[in-house]
Amino acid sequence: MEQGHARALKDAGMKATPKRLAILEALYAESGYASPEELWKRLRDRFDRLGLPTVYRNLEELAASGVITKVIHPNRQLYYFFCPNREHHHHFVCLSCRKVEDLPACGLSALEQEVSRNIGGKVLSHILQLNGLCGVCAAAAGGTP
């Protein structure tokens, strides 16, 4: 999969450094989102010099370029997720098992029109993240999925 990660970096105009590739590989192997500290602990033995600030910086650069996705947790901690879907979409985040699911429908075009009509503004981008429990975690918690 390293070729695919190198291609994603190249497409984003970023250099495919060994550390960036390792971070993408680690995120790709996750079943859900991961914190910078978790990634650093997983990768620090692979590199002679890999500090936590380097991991943070690379994650921010990767997120800013659209290669990975930031997950904003209610605990105010930032997490990151590798989403291969390059189409416009949003995410549902399970706060229990950390699973991240694509939501292909956007539904925000009416809100963008409201911004234009009511305040004369123009929406350039938006981010929508829904937090909750996935079907498996909701059922385990005694709720219905």
Rank of each mutant, 00 (worst) to 15 (best):
M1N: 15
E2T: 15
E2R: 15
Q3S: 13
G4F: 12
G4L: 15
R7D: 15
R7F: 14
L9R: 03
K10V: 13
K10Y: 14
D11S: 14
A12D: 07
G13D: 02
G13Q: 08
M14H: 02
M14S: 06
M14W: 06
T17M: 12
T17D: 11
R20F: 07
L21S: 04
L21A: 05
A22I: 10
I23T: 09
L24I: 06
E25C: 07
S31W: 08
A34V: 04
E37G: 03
E38H: 08
W40C: 08
R42H: 09
R44F: 00
R46N: 08
R46L: 04
L50Q: 00
G51A: 15
P53N: 04
T54C: 09
Y56A: 08
Y56M: 08
Y56H: 13
R57A: 14
L59Y: 07
L59M: 03
E60Q: 14
E60C: 03
L62H: 02
A63Q: 11
S65W: 10
S65G: 12
V67I: 04
I68S: 09
I68H: 00
T69N: 06
T69A: 06
K70C: 11
K70L: 13
K70V: 14
I72C: 08
I72S: 14
H73F: 02
P74I: 00
N75C: 03
N75L: 02
Y79A: 12
F81C: 08
F82P: 02
C83I: 01
C83R: 10
C83F: 04
N85F: 04
E87K: 13
H88E: 10
H91Q: 10
H91M: 12
F92N: 02
F92S: 06
V93W: 02
C94R: 08
C94L: 11
L95Q: 07
S96P: 06
C97S: 10
C97K: 03
R98L: 01
V100E: 06
V100Q: 06
E101I: 15
L108F: 12
S109T: 10
A110P: 09
Q113N: 14
V115C: 09
V115K: 01
S116L: 14
S116K: 15
S116N: 13
R117M: 13
N118T: 12
I119S: 04
G120V: 05
K122V: 10
K122A: 02
V123K: 01
V123D: 10
S125C: 02
Q129E: 08
L130T: 07
L130Y: 08
L130R: 10
L130H: 00
N131Q: 11
G132Q: 00
G132E: 03
C134M: 06
G135P: 11
G135C: 11
C137S: 02
A138S: 11
A138N: 03
A138T: 01
A138Y: 00
G143K: 14
T144L: 01
